[in-house]
Design a protein around this nucleic acid. Structure first.
Lengths: 189, 189
DNA sequence: GTCTATAAAGGGATAGAC
DNA sequence: GTCTATCCCTTTATAGAC
């Protein structure tokens, strides 16, 4: 028999999904609890039956967004680094055309301002991201460098108001990830 | 005869210096105009004689912090990419031990939430950063990749609550920048 | 130009009815 | 568990004296 969500679990899930999207796109400070609850089709007062604070919501929302994307799932995940980078470093991802963009890139400099619960969740998510990269390249150092090129490249590209420059940056990062993967095996550092 | 700052220019300069440090360390939203003015040893009311809004201050503060660091200055700037990366990807930089850290890394995901004036200033600063990198590596694509490894690596390292992991990430980025520089000339992609 | 005082708005969190 | 109403604090921005 299929899993039945209770009413409370459904509400919490809607709040988390709304929060993940809003926070990722606009950052922690720019989004109010009221906006999150409105998007979840609830009212402010109901919020504290599910979460102890706005910060608690932030941590759980990042966890949900990140773990759904990077938890080991053999099906429906990229089969090599080139595909991973192409998907990740796309203009669509940069231009908010993914429904749930990657919180690692979109929120990277937000995290340092938050409490330890949030930092913990972010750290776990980055580790999952790097595990996924490492499963595609074997070499850990290359996985780390590729992760920085992808997450850092996407984050930087989003901060620019010069589209040509931003495109150039994304392209250079894709080339960088590909050449890192290609050199693997050829030299053992 | 030496340059004489007027009283007004001195005040504005103190405000900008205070704002650059506070914003870079704590982000735009976490810092109030009051905090900036207190650090500059002035009061809130005086603020609007110098700036039209908090956002205006943000743009000018980022510009000051960034341009002082990356405007072409033949003296006192790194002579090769390895030294540049060593200085930039240091634990001291990550751990807030530089008086004026790099706004490109510390604020990267903050910028997308701001108005176009701020994005414009950030874009100019990144271009100056990349020009400096390019003057040390010649090849533009390598300069772009090195910039992402440095800025993205530093930004990511600051978001983690696992110090060993963070150290490992910084180290991998340093290695990455160095191997990019070393391969230059050897292959013409 | 700088100060004190205050207007005006927004948002986190809580109280109590249903 | 969810609702409405509200407390309370912070913060941006402005007014007016000096």
């Amino acid at each position: 028999m299929a899993w039945q969500e209770t009413h409370k679990e459904q509400s919490k899930d809607k709040i988390l999904k709304s929060a993940a999207m809003l926070f990722t796109h606009h950052g922690f400070e720019k989004i109010s609890i009221d906006q999150v609850m409105k998007k979840a089709e609830l009212t402010r007062g109901a919020f504290y039956s599910h979460f102890s604070s706005k910060s608690d919501l932030y941590a759980q929302a990042i966890s949900k967004a990140g773990m759904e994307a990077y938890k080991r799932k053999p099906v429906n995940c990229p089969q090599n680094m080139k595909d991973f980078a192409k998907y990740y470093l796309s203009k669509e991802h940069r231009d908010n055309n993914y429904q749930q963009p990657c919180p690692l890139a979109f929120l990277v400099s937000d995290i340092n301002q938050q409490d330890d619960q949030v930092k913990e969740v972010y750290t776990k998510t980055l580790k999952a991201f790097i595990d996924q990269a490492q499963s595609l390249t074997v070499n850990r150092e290359i996985a780390l460098q590729s992760a920085v090129l992808m997450i850092g490249g996407l984050a930087l590209s989003r901060a620019l108001n010069d589209e040509k420059f931003s495109d150039e940056l994304l392209a250079a990062c894709k080339v960088g990830v590909n050449s890192l993967s290609n050199k693997e095996g050829s030299d053992v550092s």
